[in-house]
Simulated assay, not measured.
Amino acid sequence: MAIKQSRAATEMVRSRHPRTGTISGRAKTGLAPGTMLFVGERKRERARIDIFDYCSESVREEHDVDVQTCFDFCVDDDSVTWINVNGVHDVALVESLGMHFGLHPMTLEDLVNTSQRPKVEEFPSYLFIAMKMMDFNEISHTVDIENVSLILGRNVVLSFLEDDGDVFDSVRERLRRCKGRVRHMKADYLAFALMDTVVDHYFLAIEQIGDYIEAIDDKILEDPRESDIQEIHYLKRDVLTLRKAAWPCREVISSIEKGDSSVLNPDTRVYWRDLYDHCIQVIDMVETYRDILGGMHDTYLSSLSNRMNEVMKTLTIISSIFIPLTFIAGVYGMNFEYMPELRWRLGYQGALAMMLLIGVSLVIYFRRKRWL
Rank of each mutant, 00 (worst) to 15 (best):
R250L: 09
E257N: 13
E257L: 12
E226G: 03
W247L: 10
S227K: 08
S227Y: 12
E257Y: 08
K244H: 11
K244L: 10
Y234T: 13
W247F: 06
S255C: 11
I232K: 02
D238V: 15
L235N: 03
P248V: 03
L242D: 04
D238W: 04
K236I: 10
K236R: 14
E257P: 04
T241L: 10
P248L: 04
L242M: 13
A246S: 15
I256F: 00
P248R: 00
D238E: 15
A245I: 00
H233K: 12
E231C: 12
H233E: 12
D238I: 13
E231Y: 08
E226S: 15
I256L: 11
R243P: 01
A245N: 02
K236T: 12
V252E: 03
E226L: 14
E251V: 02
H233V: 12
W247S: 11
A246Y: 00
S255W: 05
C249W: 00
R250A: 10
E251W: 00
A246C: 09
Q230H: 14
K244E: 04
R250Y: 11
E231I: 14
I232N: 07
I232D: 09
I256S: 00
E257G: 06
S227H: 14
A245P: 06
Y234W: 04
K244Y: 10
S255K: 15
E226P: 01
T241S: 12
V252C: 06
V252S: 02
L235W: 02
K244F: 06
K236C: 08
I256Y: 02
S254E: 10
R237W: 05
V239A: 05
I256G: 06
S227R: 11
Y234I: 11
S227E: 11
Q230P: 00
R250P: 06
E231D: 13
S254D: 12
R243G: 04
S254Y: 09
H233R: 13
C249N: 10
D228A: 06
E231W: 08
C249F: 03
S254I: 01
R250N: 14
I229D: 04
D238C: 10
I256D: 09
L240I: 12
T241V: 11
E226Q: 15
R250W: 04
I232L: 15
I229V: 14
L242A: 05
R237P: 06
H233G: 08
I256N: 04
K236D: 08
Q230Y: 15
K244I: 03
H233A: 12
E251L: 00
H233Y: 15
R243D: 01
E226K: 11
K236Y: 06
A246F: 06
L235F: 09
Q230R: 09
I253G: 11
A246H: 05
P248C: 02
K244W: 05
D228C: 06
V239S: 02
Q230C: 07
C249D: 07
L235Y: 04
K236F: 05
P248Q: 02
I256H: 03
Q230S: 08
P248K: 02
L242T: 09
I229E: 05
V239E: 03
D228I: 06
S255D: 15
S255N: 08
L240T: 11
S254N: 13
K244N: 10
A245F: 04
S254L: 09
V239G: 03
V239K: 00
W247A: 06
S227F: 10
E251D: 14
K244Q: 12
L240A: 14
Q230A: 13
S254F: 03
E226M: 14
L240C: 03
A245K: 02
V239H: 03
